[in-house]
Design a protein around this nucleic acid. Structure first.
Lengths: 200, 200
DNA sequence: ACTTTACTCAAATCGGGGTCTTGTCAACCG
DNA sequence: CGGTTGACAAGACCCCGATTTGAGTAAAGT
């Protein structure tokens, strides 16, 4: 029974993931309001009722999409940061990755930039999520700094993290230079923020 | 005739200014789409036809409003910068002034933040203007830096200016701390960007 | 367990009639 | 002349029923 229930759960989980993924793809393709629960079900190959059994409502499904996308995004940032020993290289990799993903993934872009007054026709409730993601991203950066730059005072880390996040979002919203150039400039700024003597 | 035409021109200019000011006030009060050309005319005390004679169309009037507001804004930044000898004080004054004005003046806020996907119901064509204003603001900062910090290389000035502008806009869009605290933190950052040794 | 079918109901969509605004013109005044 | 007034066509906008769509629920089938 243990194994059975475990199997059941993983199968169920697989189905949930498939539904979320299908809904995600449809959302990217046509926008959330044009996504029909029936379409999602058909695409996955289950019945509409099953989708309702799993997620309960359309907003709940949207929430699941947002959550999954957020986790993927934060994991990506985390991996980029920890994938390099040099501070500048780590910062560059993470910033580049975010800029690149935002350029190609409308969902991520919407999540990261919907905090503003912008009324994206996509997911109206991402406005709430946006702050959560930005706060979570700041947490990732702070954790990484605590691991790799333990000498840096918390205050300096917090300011650097917030500043870099704001600048990255700003460059997503209004890109002026190519992505790698921007990533390079911001990575340099990170180094300066992090190696600078504290304010006298 | 010289004096006559000059007088005519200043009278005309006064009327144009009055029309723009009235239209600006109405826009702030009710939003641009709710502004009727007839209301503007009545408020100034001229006929609707006169407004059309002066500006030609409603979009053209909007353009005039945006231009006037932009000039006032940039002049304010300029004055704040040149009103202090100390770099930190000058930066603080300018940043504070912009944050404060954006908080209280919806037009300025719209102009500064409409570049993004944000579909403000106010002036849809400010999207174009936004970039112009930000570029112009960068120009003001660069000129000031050239006057007050001639030793600083152009490249460093350009990066510092763009970075500060992006951060200020970011704090307008998503304010987290009180205005004076934000202004203080950004002013400190200006000092660091400006006094830092260049990248080795 | 999942599917199928059948149903309710709220909200979005559509259409059309009327109103309001813009933009233009010409006649009129000081 | 510079401004006002009144009139007017064209198009945008608004209100309001009629219709359709799609979310959500229930129950029976397999």
């Amino acid at each position: 029974m243990d194994t059975t229930s475990r199997y059941r759960d993983t199968a169920r989980q697989r189905m949930r993931d498939a539904i979320v993924e299908a809904a995600r793809d449809l959302t990217i393709a046509r926008g959330w309001d044009a996504v029909r629960m029936a379409d999602v079900a058909t695409q996955v190959g289950v019945s509409r009722q099953t989708v309702y059994n799993e997620f309960g409502s359309k907003p709940a499904l949207a929430e699941a999409i947002a959550q999954a996308e957020t986790e993927r995004f934060l994991a990506g940032v985390n991996d980029a940061l920890y994938g390099h020993d040099d501070v500048r290289e780590a910062a560059h990799a993470a910033i580049f990755q975010v800029l690149d993903e935002a350029a190609g993934n409308p969902l991520i872009k919407a999540i990261l930039t919907s905090a503003r007054g912008g009324s994206d026709p996509l997911l109206p409730f991402l406005t709430t999520r946006s702050e959560l993601v930005l706060v979570a991203a700041a947490g990732v950066l702070r954790q990484w700094a605590a691991d790799r730059l333990p000498a840096l005072p918390d205050e300096a880390v917090a300011f650097a993290a917030e500043t870099i996040i704001r600048l990255v979002v700003s460059h997503i919203v209004l890109p002026l230079a190519p992505v790698d150039r921007t990533a390079g400039a911001l990575a340099d700024l990170v180094v300066r923020l992090v190696t600078d003597p504290v304010t006298p």
